[in-house]
Design a protein around this nucleic acid. Sequence first.
DNA 1: GTGAAAGCGCTAACAG
DNA 2: CTGTTAGCGCTTTCAC
Lengths: 345, 345
Amino acid sequence: MEEVRTGAEYDQSHAMTIADIAEELGVSKSTVSRVISGKGRISDETRNRVLSWIRSHNYIPNSSARALASNRTYNAAVVIPRDAGKGDKPFFQECLTGLAETFTERGYDTVVSIVDGSDVSSLERLVRHRKVDGVVLTRLLKNDASLAFLQGESLPFVVLGTIQDDTVYQVDSDQSAGCYDLTRLILDSGADRLVLLAGCRDYEVNRLRYEGIVQACEGSNVTLLSELWDLQTVQDVSVALEQCMPQKPDCIICMDDVICLKALSWLKKNGYSVPGSVRVVSCYDSEALKTHVPPVTALSVSAWDLCSTAGNALLDIIEERPVEQKQQVGFQVKIRESSRVIREK
Amino acid sequence: MEEVRTGAEYDQSHAMTIADIAEELGVSKSTVSRVISGKGRISDETRNRVLSWIRSHNYIPNSSARALASNRTYNAAVVIPRDAGKGDKPFFQECLTGLAETFTERGYDTVVSIVDGSDVSSLERLVRHRKVDGVVLTRLLKNDASLAFLQGESLPFVVLGTIQDDTVYQVDSDQSAGCYDLTRLILDSGADRLVLLAGCRDYEVNRLRYEGIVQACEGSNVTLLSELWDLQTVQDVSVALEQCMPQKPDCIICMDDVICLKALSWLKKNGYSVPGSVRVVSCYDSEALKTHVPPVTALSVSAWDLCSTAGNALLDIIEERPVEQKQQVGFQVKIRESSRVIREK
DNA sequence: GTGAAAGCGCTAACAG
DNA sequence: CTGTTAGCGCTTTCAC
């Protein structure tokens, strides 16, 4: 039974095919194909014979052939912004890991596409070459080029984040609600002189966070002392703080962990203690904030939840299962030292 | 010329094929195939006719078909440890970005495989399904399971890191030499009471760093006051420091940025100033170290150099160009505040 | 339940 | 230089 190909099993170039299996087992190729795909009726006996042969010979089908014939690659793409290297590092890392894991579990492999601002050529190639069955976008800009491109193609995709257009599948934590809660927490504990240190206005996520913050403030008839936008560099943050610290804020709201860390570093250098002279909170949690001295109060969303939801949604769309257009995952306000009330007002 | 398929160009399911092109242009499929692949002789006229048709119709070949026929997927895999989420984050992120960029430039797409310790099943599937033409491993453990698996397959691969076996393609910075230089620097500026805070003994890279450190010490007839290994958690590092600070070291060598940050945090909490009461250096640089207060002296290797070298090496192997078995990229000792000499001895 | 046969879209000898 | 002819390995009607 095995004399013909002995030893050849280890040679990639002479890998077995369903034809080999069919021949050895005295059945037809289609029969073998059927038991592999699980489609069509097969007698238990035949199925078992084929399956056990496959297992014992460690057969794995050639996916290019399968892709060509079935028009399905069993690959899914995840799009990562090139500048993930700066800034929100852990988040995209976790996204990638989480998505890859979800895909793997369901028999798909993960292709990455790094896009740089509006240059989505790598994504374009991937999609046009039909190398993937679907795409998940891990971040959304205003006028997002990847989004625009994908909307023009007829390929399933889901975005991590929130977007007005409800023809696109999206999963997000409720950023507004989260920031609302976080801000409420601050306000309720007596703060009323708030400043906001924010990042790039182009990010949809920042808009949503802002919305939540402002809503909470309005609810308490508080207005932000200052709001500084488009903070990128250490320099930017320093300038922003120099500008707003004279206003004697009692709490600084940072829109993400990166800005927050820069702010904390400036505060320390300039002799402000946290939370003694000013309290600090962040709308995005990270390891660094957690281990900071003092630990920083922050809004925490589980990238893993986000990704497993998004990944499964994508595969469901691909496999034509029903999927909700808009899904949300939970968030948590992690209350830590940096927002402690030192002196009651 | 376009009347037949008007509008169909936007429909993935009716994408054009070389057969369509051949027909419309009155040439044969192989002619079209030849101009696309650039193989074989074609008259300039024919080539231009085909090329301009392709461009104006925005034709892109179907890669599954190409893969099946040519036995080449134009995909390359990068293997990332699952626990990249904890610890060395930026490094793997940069690796992925760097490799993806290199691959893209040369017409390949990037497939990721997250492996979890010795569970390399996702890599196995990828390789056995023949979904990639080659693999780069971004980290090496002692008895690395991915390595072992790949050595059994006849698929090109290159590893980031150093390994004894010189049948495997490898690219690395000279970790030993780098750590040697770093340690020398410390010793030459008068330190002689050194302690080492180290991570997992299983990492080849840690062994190499250790080697360099020890060599430098021997050159100066200094022995490490203590060396603490397998430090993972904040807790581990605290215990380690509680144990070695009573020995009054004048410099703490941390094997990587993660350990270093934990150490710095402990030192601060426990009233030690850096570099005042003790100097601190790290064998691996990171953004956090650079922006730390004070900035930390560290050995810096450019993940980007590493990756572009490794990525190109892999593709060269795949495309059967000559490649050196072992390549090294440079490193730099970034001298910063944390190792400043406060009181000359 | 199973088999025969016709592709999927591209590549690669082999002729001319 | 270009066309003809087989496939690559799997899926998928359509018969039996």
